[in-house]
Write a protein that binds this DNA or RNA. Structure first.
Length: 155
DNA sequence: GCCAACGTTGGC
DNA sequence: GCCAACGTTGGC
């Protein structure tokens, strides 16, 4: 089992939106970054645990926990000319972009703000989120980092 | 293959 | 709203 952190802008789709979805599950479409895609395509498995992160908002940080709820499959929006994620260069016989379904598990008892995560940089050695200039929307979390961040929930 | 221009991300 | 970081595009 692997651990991940996935970013979302709460103005567009936040953890409350996920919770309110039928089956509390949403196809994580629109990922158009190869590194993030490769994580989904090559490494994600059903049951993997996800930190749900709110970006581009007043208090960016980890707000809850979700779970990978499907195997990777082609992102349908890449073939939809009306979608803002439409990719005319993607070949239906060899889709360029994939996604997984993401299922809501729970909110954290409190938001763990980015600022606080940065304060613990030493304990979270090499955490992808706080590496300089990081813009990945999906990134791996080690088991150690996962446990440590979960511990911060009660701090 | 290089690299300048451009667009996007996302914290502040 | 600003801007640093960085990915992508496209001319050459």
């Amino acid at each position: 089992m692997n651990y991940w952190l996935m970013k979302s802008e709460p103005d567009a789709f936040g953890i409350d939106d996920l919770k309110q979805r039928p089956k509390k599950t949403e196809p994580w479409d629109g990922v158009r970054n190869y590194q993030a895609r490769n994580f989904m395509r090559d490494e994600m498995q059903k049951g993997d645990q996800i930190f749900f992160y709110h970006s581009n908002c007043k208090v960016p940080g980890i707000v809850g926990i979700a779970e990978v709820a499907s195997a990777p499959y082609p992102d349908p929006t890449q073939f939809d000319p009306d979608s803002k994620y439409f990719d005319p260069k993607s070949n239906p016989d060899d889709p360029r972009w994939v996604l997984v379904d993401v299922k809501y598990k729970r909110h954290l008892k409190r938001v763990i703000p980015l600022g606080e995560i940065k304060d613990h940089a030493d304990a979270l050695a090499d955490f992808a989120l706080t590496r300089r200039g990081n813009r990945l929307s999906i990134m791996p979390v080690t088991a150690e980092q996962w446990d440590y961040l979960l511990g911060m929930e009660n701090a």
